[in-house]
Simulated scan of single mutants.
Amino acid sequence: MTELPRIPLAGVIGHPIAHSRSPALHGHWLRRYGIKGHYIPMDIAPQDLAEALKMLPRLGFVGINVTIPHKEKVLALADVVTDRAALIGAANTLIFRKDGKVHADNTDGAGFMANLRQYAPHWAPNAPVALFGAGGAARAVIAALIEVGVPEIRIANRTRLRAEQLRSDFGAKLVVHDWVHAGEMLRGAGLVINSTSLGMTGKPDLRLPLEELERGAVATDLVYTPLMTQFLIEAQERGAHVVDGLGMLLHQAAPGFERWFGKRPEVDEALRDAVLKA
């Protein structure tokens, strides 16, 4: 009797996970391309992470996305880690290979750049960048900006020590500024990025003096709930070209989907609408 091929399974692990938009995102692509597969959200506690990574491939999973609090810990559990995931110190995409090895990658920086290319195609990496925040998302963004040749990345974080650590990790292109003088970072900056959670629904707004913001500069927020944060609203009022954070989520998902399901998916307005309605 011929054995039927297994239906490929993928998903996202985190703790908690109920808020994730990834199932709506990948579900849209699976339906759009008529692929027999499933994408499942899984709440996995930290103490169960290692066991889950051993079990999921046996259950038919071809890969998973990884979110908080597992993005750093999966690196130690993977067999193969890409250079960019190692540099960033976190993985958001795992591929369960046919040879049994777990392959870890980080597509957040690529997603960030693809979002910029789609919604601010005129931006060029020839002026300083101002970056607020020094968490995992900031690390991915910094790695991507350095790769495309940005000359200087000015960074401020409420805890200065974390920004200093990033300068130590990524080198002299990073210039650390005090949070209280963060407005000065905007002078001459061609791109301004909020990578903090400030401005997210339920959190305080990112309060920045924007007097030094260059007219025509690009302002982007990694927050996407709400789509237009107070920071983006105020930046737009001062003549900046604004890019919301939803596109980064959509673009970072595409490489994983392609590896798991064998189809390079399209990031378009239909996808944005499907995720926003979820």
Rank of each mutant, 00 (worst) to 15 (best):
V180T: 15
G111S: 12
P151W: 03
H70D: 04
T93K: 05
M55T: 08
G216V: 09
H177P: 07
P8C: 02
G245T: 13
G239Q: 11
V267N: 00
W179R: 12
L213F: 11
G60V: 09
A91L: 05
P41V: 04
Y39S: 11
A127Q: 15
P46D: 11
F170Q: 03
R154S: 04
H103V: 02
P265T: 07
Q118S: 15
K98P: 15
W260P: 09
K173D: 04
A253R: 03
R6T: 14
H28R: 13
V175G: 06
G188Y: 14
P46L: 13
K173R: 15
R158E: 08
P57C: 05
A274V: 02
G171A: 14
G111Y: 02
R264S: 12
S22L: 00
G11D: 00
A104W: 02
M55F: 01
A144H: 09
R160A: 03
E72W: 05
I146S: 09
A138I: 03
D273R: 15
S195L: 04
E72D: 12
T220C: 14
A130M: 08
I44T: 04
H19V: 10
A219L: 05
A182E: 10
V74D: 15
A120C: 12
I233F: 10
M228R: 15
P41G: 07
A278D: 07
L208K: 12
A85M: 07
A189N: 13
A217I: 03
A219Y: 01
P57L: 04
M248W: 05
H26V: 02
D205F: 09
V150N: 07
R259G: 06
A86C: 10
A10R: 01
P226R: 13
L166G: 02
L4W: 04
D178C: 09
K98W: 04
A144F: 09
G202E: 04
E266A: 11
A78G: 10
A156P: 10
P46T: 08
V129F: 07
N126Q: 12
G149L: 15
A120I: 14
R264L: 08
G14W: 00
D273I: 12
T107S: 11
H241P: 08
H241Y: 05
G149M: 14
K263L: 06
D244M: 06
D244T: 13
I68W: 08
H38M: 14
A163W: 01
A104N: 10
G63I: 01
L53Y: 03
L53I: 05
G34I: 06
L131Q: 10
Q230N: 15
H251A: 15
W29D: 04
R259V: 01
A240R: 00
A140Q: 13
E184G: 11
W179V: 14
